[in-house]
Design a binder for these strands. Structure first.
Length: 231
DNA sequence: CCCTGATTCGC
DNA sequence: GCGAATCAGG
């Protein structure tokens, strides 16, 4: 795969929205997480909270990653100067994860109007082609004018809470579909996969039937799609 | 272990 | 320019 203009646009968009490099790579397809990161940097998209870069120790001269011993004596230019204007950065909120489903004590609080900080149970889903689905009016996210009076257990769509969505799929997540695509609660199994297979052990049992001798009668295996519900 | 982004450097 | 390999923190 190559970096077409379209794919670069998708990369930019997703990167700026805070999707991780892995997610972007999955969405784009045909590229690795590293490729995404490398491209992002080359594009000048930069700086997002890196676990490695949290603090910078100016003490020792950095002994950076050197995969191969440089033949030449390292004449390293001083890399201390950070030309980039330290971004006071409009703090870009990362993809707001659904708030922990902690059950608040119902009897407590909730009485008078506590100024509720506007929660942002933003749900981001990525559609085919890498565009991001947003709720209407989600474009510039104007400040919600009048916060509700009462705090409600932030429920960013109970339908998909705790469900394995497309975004959650990785190499080691069982991809067995649960329910039917298009239904509101459609999701994926989400178990750990049977290593080497796209499904967990249980669903491998459904997906892969032992080859029986010719002529052997057996009931048709349940199908993941189409037929009656399989769960 | 898993994840994350940053960086280097051979191609 | 690209991206695997590597580093390093969570």
């Amino acid at each position: 795969m190559s970096w077409t203009d379209e794919r670069i646009d998708q990369l930019k968009g997703m990167w700026e929205r805070g999707l991780t490099a892995s997610q972007i790579a999955d969405e784009l397809g045909g590229v690795s997480r590293n490729a995404v990161i490398g491209k992002a940097h080359r594009l000048g998209l930069q700086s997002r909270p890196s676990p490695v870069k949290a603090n910078e120790t100016p003490k020792k001269a950095a002994a950076p990653a050197q995969r191969k011993p440089a033949a030449a004596p390292d004449v390293e230019a001083p890399r201390a100067a950070a030309p980039v204007t330290s971004p006071p950065a409009p703090v870009r909120a990362p993809v707001a994860p659904p708030p922990a489903p902690a059950i608040p004590a119902p009897a407590a609080a909730a009485a008078t109007d506590a100024p509720p900080p506007p929660p942002q149970p933003r749900i981001i889903s990525v559609g085919p082609g890498g565009f991001l689905r947003q709720g209407p009016g989600d474009q510039q996210a104007p400040i919600p004018p009048a916060p509700p009076r009462r705090l409600v257990p932030a429920k960013p769509s109970a339908e998909i809470a705790d469900k394995t969505t497309l975004l959650d799929l990785t190499e080691r997540i069982c991809k067995w579909p649960m329910g039917h695509p298009g239904e509101p609660d459609f999701h994926f199994c989400g178990e750990q996969v049977n290593p080497g297979f796209p499904y967990c052990v249980e669903h491998c049992g459904r997906a892969y039937q032992a080859q029986l001798p010719r002529g052997t009668r057996r009931p048709p295996p349940p199908l993941p799609f189409g037929g009656p519900r399989v769960r």
